[in-house]
Design a protein around this nucleic acid. Sequence first.
DNA 1: CTGTTAGCGCGTTCAA
DNA 2: TTGAACGCGCTAACAG
Lengths: 356, 356
Amino acid sequence: MTIHKIARLAKVSIATVSRTINGVPTVDPVLARRVWRVIEKQGYYPNRHARSLVSGRSRIFGLMVPEAPNAFFPEIIHTFARLCIQHNYQVLLSAICQDAGLLETAARQMIERRVDGVAILTFREQESLVEIFRDRNVSVFVIDSDRPGPLLRSVCIDYQHGIRQAVQHLAALGHNRIAFVSGPAHLKTAAVQKNAFHACMKEIGLQVAAEILLEGDHTMEAGAEAASSLVSLRHRPTAVVCSNDLMAIGLMHKASELYLDIPGDLSVVGFEDIPFAKYMIPQLTTVQISREEIATVAFETLFAAADPAINGDTQIVSSIATNLVVRGSTSMGPGRVRDGRRSRAGRAHAQANRFI
Amino acid sequence: MTIHKIARLAKVSIATVSRTINGVPTVDPVLARRVWRVIEKQGYYPNRHARSLVSGRSRIFGLMVPEAPNAFFPEIIHTFARLCIQHNYQVLLSAICQDAGLLETAARQMIERRVDGVAILTFREQESLVEIFRDRNVSVFVIDSDRPGPLLRSVCIDYQHGIRQAVQHLAALGHNRIAFVSGPAHLKTAAVQKNAFHACMKEIGLQVAAEILLEGDHTMEAGAEAASSLVSLRHRPTAVVCSNDLMAIGLMHKASELYLDIPGDLSVVGFEDIPFAKYMIPQLTTVQISREEIATVAFETLFAAADPAINGDTQIVSSIATNLVVRGSTSMGPGRVRDGRRSRAGRAHAQANRFI
DNA sequence: CTGTTAGCGCGTTCAA
DNA sequence: TTGAACGCGCTAACAG
């Protein structure tokens, strides 16, 4: 079933069939209708390989995401995929795995398939990956690049806004000794977030003692360690902001083991708002990063870059907002509690209203 | 950068370049080396569209998974993708969304791309989707099909084994009034699981009262409702098996609101072992379904079916095993408790050893 | 063992 | 407005 058969059945040339399919306006409506009828009757689906080969555009985007178990990326994948389908694009997926060889193979496959662009959606920098694509003139989209260009599109996440909300939320609840668990030093964003935290604390006149500035590698284990560290302090903080949800969750687990009541003894704020967050007991208050927005910006940027009709320099949005989602893991600090420590029952009740 | 340029630089014909790339053994090693050197020096990547077009094999598999928020499928995606890369295949991804039109478009795109096979990995039947592919002679892999054939490969999940382990685990702990929350009636697997539960209870001589056989739609809300129902019974069960983890988690939440201690007052067993399961407090005891195994079977089945060198009828494995993972949400029942209800501290301690 | 040649299915010129 | 012819980059015959 090829274009030739359709042409023969519709008694036109293959050129007319091609024009009809591609919506060229100069086709006689009568012929076009005839062609469409045959196409539908025969259930003809044009061969995309042939189209890609001759047109030079594959209408495929590569998508590379880490295989982290934290449920942050699946939603991105699906949003990106949906947008692609809606715009008659297809998604070639690959995980960003530890195995450098496999990763390179994946990149190579995408290039062999002549993708019109690649979205590398991860918080870790992937310099070598980006370079591979740049060498082949493939446009790439990444998160938080500090030096985007014509072939390297990017959008920055406005961490400061979310962190400010978190800090001010806690301060408003009467906390003045607020700890921060940053990400691993090798992540550029870790420094950005830490600085943002400092700035936000300073804004409202709160001190940041060195001992309540911790660092973790974004795993639950790291969160657990942070909990242990905080508990061992002479002068404990009454609230803590974690730079990702997984650490916040690990911290909550460990706190529970250490007979620390959350949020009674310690208010906890996470970052990202992964699906787990609202399945915790108590549900985790966290700074949300919109996965849908990231996927949308990534797609639209690549789409614009791939479309020859569009000026390649169009910048869609300047940054991705972050927003605090208040749930059950934060409550009033020592300065505000009137009726003593809140009871477990009280928390359960308060939480009931936020269920799901 | 095409095969012609390589041929010219290596002073051979394009046929020799093609043979070299494809590892045809009759190529003179001297020439082959020369060709490879040029290929590498030039950074030549063959155009897969052209190869697919002429060879008739795209070396692409379609992968369709639901965009459920339960973290069951992401791991499947990545395992499948990894296997594809390792076997020089590529993955075209699409979500199984509610919008039937979009879904059909996605299927159409895969067919236009002449995929060598499609894995539809979901627990809901997708009759119409399967039909679309069957009409185009595309081999499809699905989970739990009851009538597989040459174009419809499948593997069944051995629910019975896992459910038996769950039931016997609870019975061994001294529970004899065990509830079951099945999936929605429209899922074929729901009936299978329910029957398995009945059989396993009967095996060990336990009664199944109709009132402790509930049904839910696999959401957390359904689990919460199940909790309410069970609590309202005159003669409450002391343990409950849920047909998926999300319901088990919802049930745990609601139980907590109702001042029901888990596992002290009620032991809970889930199904699937989604990543959330071990992040709950207490960690959820659940029947694991190996996502890696499902992805592997799906890939290998499609791979074998696509390879003309392999006999198309090879069946890789007969079924996917399910296995109980014992964690913190189950404990001794009324028949076994010696020192009265277990304390919260006791549980936390017990759980500490299983942390992470 | 190598080179020449004919397509794979389609988009796109160029005449008509 | 339409159709014949060319070529996208590659594989697979076939001839040498």
